[in-house]
Amino acid sequence: MKEINEEWPIFEVFIRSKNGLEHRHAGSLHAADSTMAMENARDVYTRRQEGVSIWVVESKHITASNPTEAGEMFEPAKDKVYRHPTFYELPIELKHI
């Protein structure tokens, strides 16, 4: 009996839509290696000139935060209003500040 076929690994695809903008996550795909991932990303995600630059990275290399720990992770920033400019009270007649 034939052993179970090995699946091609999953890659995440990031696309810069035009010069001056950042790369954004577009989706994922399977490929044997990064060269093929790049070729597939071009065909799958940029058929209508959606990008000027592509990054591909194997999904297993991404470390993601855990949604069940989102509280501990992000809530500490919630009560720190003094990190925003509107926290500081200045007279309205003051200009350029």
């Binding site: 076929n5 699946e7 999953i10 989706g27 994922s28 795909l29 399977h30 065909d43 799958v44 058929r47």
Partner: peptide, 23 residues
């Protein structure tokens, strides 16, 4: 027809996030 191949791939990827493999 090329688009349809692409659409199949987007959707397979979405399903794979739920823990089923392409195979």
């Amino acid at each position: 027809v090329q688009d349809e191949a692409g659409h199949g791939l987007y959707l397979y990827s979405a399903a794979e996030t739920l823990g089923i493999s392409r195979d």
